[in-house]
């Protein structure tokens, strides 16, 4: 679980070009959107591709992303349960 969290944080930093941010700066339970990390709707679309490409999880409805992408904790929980690769 911890390894997956670390991996996911590194991937998020990379695909979203979050310069000056390290995995340690992202708290597991912190909000990724709005307050917290401050991601926006374009980032949400990038995360949908990340889920597909890395974990084989297809999200057809962008609205579904809202619940899944609340925090690192919620993402990891969803990935663990639904990953196909």
């Amino acid at each position: 679980m911890t390894a997956l969290k670390e991996e996911l944080k590194r991937q998020i930093i990379e695909v979203l070009h979050l310069e000056d941010i390290t995995p340690a700066d992202i708290q597991d339970e912190e909000a990724l959107f709005g307050e917290g990390l401050g991601l926006d709707s374009i980032d949400a679309l990038e995360l949908i591709v990340l889920m597909d490409k890395t974990y084989g999880i297809k999200l057809a409805d962008p609205k579904k992303g809202r619940d899944i992408f609340q925090s690192i904790d919620t993402m990891v929980a969803y990935i663990s349960e639904h990953r196909t690769k």
Binding site: V15, I42, L45, E46, V49, D52, K53
Partner: peptide, 9 residues
């Protein structure tokens, strides 16, 4: 496949 929106936008 696996195309992302940022560069398109």
């Amino acid at each position: 496949q696996f195309l992302t929106p940022t560069s398109f936008i």
